[in-house]
Amino acid sequence: MLRRAVIDLVLVGPAALALVVFIFLPVAVVVVLSFTDYQFGATRFEWVGLGNYADLFGSRLGRNALINTLVYAAIVIPASVGLGLLVALGLHGIAHTVPRVSAVLRAVYFLPVAATLVAMAVAWQMLLHPSLGLVNQWLAGLGLPSRQWLSDRGLVLYTLAAIGVWQSVGYNMVLFLAGLAAIPPTLYDAAAVDGAEGGWSRFWVVTWPMLGPTTLFVMIVTAANAFRVFETVATMTQGGPAFASDTIVYALYREGFVYFKAGYASAITVVFFAALLLLTAIQIAVVERRVHYR
């Protein structure tokens, strides 16, 4: 018995140790720091209790970052899941009639996912340039007023959300295509025999419910990515103008790495971490319980 236990310990030891050293320990440090006013590089710190958390939820800037993130997610999640599904349905539909076109379009839609984000951000900046960018030139060609896509306080968050949608549609499309391919064709036959005439009925009777697990997975992945939005903000707007595009992860970066406020940044990290954990828990609970058809 003892020997068995020793062997088990030896086998599981390295992995467990790595887990403790590289995951649990840093998380614990961050949690501890979040209750202090620690400054990066400082030699001492004071305990401030929940002060950092009160700042995050109570201060104008903290709340602004939280609300911006929620608004961003509220646009990106439904739009990119819906568009991803729409594109996947379209490509799945034409995959038999014009397979080449379908394959090319698939690659085109997936391009933003595979491309380097920073390079893409530069391209977007050029497209959206107020006077030199193609977008405003097209608008002018159509007789529409040009807009300050990335520097108008009222617009910048929606511009970033549109770019966020553009980024994730391709990935969602691929997931939905896999989901569509997994639907047994006989279910459509069954629905046709049962009286589902036309695409709309077929969609609601077969496609939509059969895509349930895929849809939920896509939603969770998209939500996690939306709440994590950082690169586009950092490269294109730096949270500006006047914090109009400040999001929670950008605020985390700003407070921690630009302002050197390690304690406060830790508090943001903890809140963010908890939110992602909650999202994952919901995913596990819902996926296991309801959508597995078992």
């Binding site: 047994p184 036959d189 025999v193 058809y293």
Partner: peptide, 21 residues
């Protein structure tokens, strides 16, 4: 005529039951 219009009942080899219902 569509399958629905012919009102033919069909039992599939795989049964093709709706797994979510």
């Amino acid at each position: 005529d569509t399958a629905a219009a012919r009102n033919v009942a069909l039992m599939f080899q795989s049964y093709a039951l709706y797994p979510h219902l």
